[in-house]
Design a binder for these strands. Structure first.
Length: 584
RNA sequence: GCUCCCAUAGUUUAACUGGAUAAAAUAGGGGUUUCCUAAACCCUAGCUCCGUGUUCGAGUCACGGUGGGAGCGCCA
């Protein structure tokens, strides 16, 4: 509850309790009801009166009128509330822009505002995301996961949680055997200098195709060869292990380069290869003590009670499954990392899988499963259907990155080519590209599919990441041109323009928006707020000039306001994983 | 066959979790640069898949359809 909400709730509680002797309204209860009117002319805060109708036995419209009448006498000149009016069934409050500015601007200027949430020390939470497979290409679908997970890590940290952001890389399994099979037996090319991991992904696709296309005797022969490689890998055969390690490094090198470019950092990286054995052990022990059962040669658990069917945990040939390793991984998260809360950022197609994993962990006696959450997100699709490394119809991340950078360089940065260093041109293009990609992945709800079309991602107008960073650089540009130090010692009463007030309101609500984004697992809330915020800045930029302010006092006040807008935008963008350039 | 997700201007998405006149972007039409970066701003036109129900009130909840996507024991 901020200063304004508190004042409003206290005023409303007082007058409600005097009107209704049967019930007692506490200010904090009323705070739950507080909303924001659809447009600022109606007011800044609204109290809907529907819920009072029953006990007061009057229509909400009448109640709002009566309350508004009674409250008029409570208004005085230095109050934070400047006007109260009834609009239909709503009681609307207009608050003082001056008080708002006094409340929020000095704190932002000093930086204390952004440090407040982290002062509350909350529990340790692990966020698992990215999970790419080695020997496959990193495509734009993987990017959605990375953007979501990274942003959530940043938001949770900001909100006071102790965050452990982890990756879980798939470096074992049948797809690797297929890739190596093709690499050894059918490949004629020499590995390229760069992006060897992507090249392996192509080999994998070719391997799948060759296996699918093969007929009769040949098909059987191929399948035996692949199966043999898989067994040799499982048995830690020296030669194959060496080859696996070498090619695995190629993929990892690609991944780490991408993470670095994206400014994504993990606190820890798990590999499937390290939990493989552990998982097998857990399942075999579970079979011994009767938690799991053998069925058709394989081991699994009957989850009919939970309405989740039969969950396979170990193949009949004794090889591990994805599920096997997930049990071991969960055990490590709880036992070794002591996490209280565990978030899995994984595609929605695995919703059933995680329900089964969590149910199995519960049967095994892990009470912590109550704090395990699968955060699903919908796929990035191609117009012709699902992206699949198997089928080879993917848009590689490296291609998206390359095209966006080329587009930025040629259409916008060309004009600076004469006077900027090559280094700055490159860094600026990178920052804008990262903004465009991450914002594009985060600005919509995660349970909605994204149909990928390259031309959509090259747009730099309107509701895009580029727009946000452009707003930021324009504010910084103001600062460079005004020969005046930013100071919080200004006359706040000069900030009277509606556009300025909108900005103040959004800054006042910033920390709450970040909090909600985290608790609801929705970085999109923050992304959208920042877009609206940038939009409001752009409007203010056109209506409230700093350079051409009528008086020196007004200039100083606006300079402070816009400086604070830039600081807030910088913080917000950072929480989305975006670092804006200082000029563009 | 069963289960889950999605459906809103021509297109891509919002709507504070059941509240006020459904809001942006883009595409379309028109305008703004002797003045802090026109990657911007202003004006204009255009929308809740179809039924039934729940209640003061439904884009939002329930049930039944239609269309798209995903999942359902040896893939990850």
């Amino acid at each position: 509850m901020n200063l304004f909400e508190q004042t409003i709730c206290e005023m409303a509680a007082k007058v409600l309790n005097s009107a209704d002797e049967s019930g007692v309204w506490e200010p904090f209860e009323l705070n739950e009801l507080i909303e924001q009117p659809p447009n600022p002319e109606m007011g800044d805060y609204a109290l809907p009166c529907f819920s009072f109708a029953k006990s007061l036995r009057r229509s909400p419209i009448k109640i709002a009128e009566e309350l508004a009448d009674k409250l008029q006498t409570d208004l005085n000149h230095d109050s934070s509330v400047t006007a109260i009016q009834a609009v239909g069934p709503y009681l609307n409050f207009t608050v003082s822009a001056v008080v708002m500015a006094e409340t929020v601007l000095p704190d932002i200027f000093l930086g204390t505002y952004f440090k407040a949430p982290s002062k509350i020390a909350l529990e340790r939470v692990m966020i698992e995301y990215s999970q790419p497979n080695t020997h496959k290409g990193f495509h734009v679908g993987h990017m959605r996961n990375v953007a979501l997970g990274d942003s959530l890590c940043r938001i949770y940290k900001y909100n006071g949680y102790e965050v452990v952001g982890v990756n879980y890389i798939g470096d074992v399994g049948a797809h690797i055997a297929k890739c190596l099979w093709f690499f050894r037996n059918h490949n004629t090319e020499t590995p390229p200098e760069h992006f060897r991991g992507e090249w392996l992904g192509e080999l994998y696709t070719q391997a799948v195709k060759k296996l699918d296309d093969a007929q009769g005797q040949e098909k059987i022969k191929f399948q035996q060869e692949v199966s043999q490689i898989l067994q040799k890998l499982e048995a830690k055969d020296k030669e194959f292990t060496r080859e696996w390690k070498m090619t695995r490094e190629w993929s990892l090198k690609d991944f780490y380069e991408i993470y670095e470019w994206l400014d994504v950092n993990f606190d820890h990286i798990f590999y499937e290869s390290e939990v493989d054995e552990e998982g097998r052990k857990i399942v075999l022990e579970g079979e011994q003590n009767g938690t799991f059962e053998r069925s058709e040669g394989a081991i699994g658990i009957n989850l009919e009670e939970e309405n989740l069917g039969f969950f396979m945990l170990l193949k009949s040939d004794g090889n591990t499954l994805y599920a096997t390793k997930d049990l071991a991984l969960a055990q490590r998260k709880f036992d070794e990392f002591g996490v209280k809360r565990s978030i899995y950022v994984v595609g929605a197609e695995q919703t059933l899988h995680f329900k089964q994993v969590f149910a199995t962990l519960k049967r095994m006696g892990y009470v912590q499963v109550g704090q395990c959450f699968h955060l699903p997100y919908a796929l990035v699709m191609l117009p012709e259907g699902k992206m699949s490394s198997r089928a080879g119809n993917v848009i590689l991340f490296s291609q998206l990155r390359k095209e966006i950078i080329e587009s930025i360089q040629s259409t916008h940065l060309a004009e600076h080519r004469e006077d900027w260093s090559q280094l700055e041109l490159n860094e600026t293009a990178q920052k804008i590209a990262v903004a465009a990609i991450k914002y594009g992945m985060l600005n919509q709800d995660s349970n909605k599919q994204i149909v990928f079309s390259m031309k959509d991602w090259l747009i730099s107008e309107g509701d895009t990441g580029t727009y946000l960073v452009y707003a930021y650089v324009r504010i910084r540009s103001i600062g460079r041109q005004i020969p005046r130090e930013v100071s919080s010692d200004v006359d706040f009463s000069l900030l009277v323009h509606p556009n300025e007030k909108k900005l103040l309101r959004q800054m006042l609500d910033f920390n709450r928006t970040v909090y909600n984004s985290g608790e609801q697992y929705r970085p999109s809330l923050l992304a959208r707020m920042l877009y609206e915020f940038s939009k409001n800045f752009s409007r203010a930029y056109n209506t409230c000039s700093v350079k051409h302010a009528e008086t020196a006092q007004l200039q100083a006040a606006r300079l402070l306001l816009f400086h604070c807008v830039a600081e807030t935008l910088l913080q917000g963008l950072h929480l989305l994983g975006i670092t804006p350039p200082e000029r563009m």
